[in-house]
Amino acid sequence: MAATRKPKLAVWKFASCDGCQLSLLDCEDELLAVAGAVEIANFPEASRAVVKGPYDISLVEGSITTPHDAERIHQVRRASGILITIGACATAGGIQALRNFRNIKELVPMVYPTPAYIETLNKSTPIADHVFVDFELRGCPISKHQLVETLCALLNGRKPNTPTYSVCLECKRRGIVCVMVAHGTPCLGPVTQAGCGAICPAYQRGCYGCFGPKETPNTAALSALWGQLGARDGDIMRAFRSFNAYAEPFRRESEAHEK
């Protein structure tokens, strides 16, 4: 990155809900400052102007679900200096990875009257299954604080500070009473990566895992505890099989409880 010009930022979308890139536009207080520090070179959700690549930083939202996108992600990689995946779709395949546990040929006709027209892959896969990823931001959606932190870190040549420990640490730090211990509410907090700020326990609800598995999660021990709280195998399977269903530790645990 030459000191004389602003680094170019590009935002790319694959199969997703648009929510993670919306997080950038939801940085109401920081948006103009970010726009002042980088050149927004390709961000179709916000601008019709497109500046040619290569791009210093690419934010990639969404998972790979079509043959066309499986090709396109390589073009994005080639045009990008640092490639950051943002959100559960890009980092784990997203909710649409629920197809990975079923037969796609049975699923498509449930939605489309003429299934033959639909060109889609059997599996929804994370970006890192296709190209090298420099950094990932978890979440469904991502935390906009983590997004701003990551951009600031890169612009200043330091490592982003995004912890890989569990939601429990954030929860304790906020002084929230444990919903599982005190109320018997099943919670995925012990195996889920921090980053959201322990929102669900703060609203008296169990964490549902939208930031995906923490580093070295003990999912089996948590499942056993859920069982003591009255959760059945089907409940445990569905709990692990949601927005990060195809992230390895969650996938294995959900399969262990599949009939």
Partner: peptide, 14 residues
């Protein structure tokens, strides 16, 4: 050309 995500299909059984 937004990729299909098949929500109605995987809602079945939830």
């Amino acid at each position: 050309f937004e990729p299909p995500r098949l929500f109605e299909a995987f809602l079945r059984g939830r």
